Amino acid sequence: MHVTGGGVSVRHPAQHRSREHHRLSPRAYLATTGRILRQLAADHRSVAMILVVPSLIITLMYFMFVDAPQRPGAPSPFNNACLIMLGVFPLIVMFLITSITMQRERVSGTLERILTTPLRRLDLLAAYGTAFSIAAAAQATLACAISFWLLGLDTAGSPALVFAIAIINAVLGVGLGLLCSAFARTEFQAVQFMPVVIAPQLLLCGIIVPRAVMPDWLQWISNALPASYALEALQQVGAHPELTATAARDIAIVIGFAVVAMALAAATLRRRTP
């Protein structure tokens, strides 16, 4: 900026903010993460849905299969069903919880007020992702502990891999939930996205019909859906004592889908005025 008598260098605050726009602010990130976790903990129904319901359903499945006939040398029916549930539940539950919670933030005006503060979108997105990932980790921990140590789930691979895949699936559900909440106007509409986003993945991932026997065009669609790779990774862990190349590839693909979903969700975190 030029003034009479010389030039004065002024560092414009807008330029300063633009340089730091993509930097994570630890203080803002931690404060926002804590706020979201406190809100989530105060919602007892959501806590029950995250922690209790998956474990109860897996326990119910155990008693359904406890007297089912088993072919010699074949995995027990409960093992197959439990592995599927450990992969499916985190995706479904975290998608529902995240999409509804985020839509509630939008409708109540909380999100708009937050975005008028110095808190950046990166801080907010990271906080939501971390808070719900912590909830997902708690869900996976409880469900895996009950499945392996109380219900006798047995896998050839390490239980730690099953636990890790369950958390990755939950993070994918968080990313998809954050993204879909941007296209809903009410919490009911957010729930309606589940048949659109989640149901096709469950139908085409190989739970009902093996992917190899589907028509070619359905196999192409299945190959583009992350749940197909999540289920395949769990099946690989269930059948092989070591981490196979297929399982490692599938895990990397699911992580890639989760990162892309989070990145697209970041684009929806913009200021909105009704």
Rank of each mutant, 00 (worst) to 15 (best):
A184P: 06
D154S: 09
V197P: 03
L96M: 14
L142R: 07
G173Q: 08
S99L: 00
A131I: 02
T130R: 03
L178H: 06
L150M: 12
R106A: 13
A131T: 02
L150K: 01
A164H: 08
S99G: 06
S181N: 05
A166L: 10
S133T: 11
G173R: 06
A160L: 15
L178N: 07
L178S: 08
V197D: 11
V162H: 04
S133A: 13
A137H: 10
L115D: 06
D123V: 03
P90H: 00
T141M: 13
I167V: 15
V196D: 13
I198S: 01
F148S: 07
S158R: 04
V191K: 03
S158L: 11
W149G: 08
Q139V: 14
I100H: 05
L151T: 02
T116V: 15
V107K: 09
I168M: 06
A164V: 11
A135W: 05
L96D: 09
E112R: 13
L150V: 11
A182V: 09
L150H: 06
G175A: 09
V174A: 11
L142A: 08
F163L: 15
F89H: 07
L119K: 07
L125R: 02
Q139L: 15
G157A: 04
Y128R: 12
F163H: 12
S99C: 02
R185W: 06
T130H: 06
S108Y: 07
T141F: 14
V197N: 11
I114N: 14
V162R: 00
T155W: 00
L111P: 08
L179G: 06
Q189T: 13
E105N: 12
A126Y: 04
G129M: 11
T98V: 05
F95A: 09
V93P: 02
T110G: 13
L124T: 04
L179Q: 03
L124G: 04
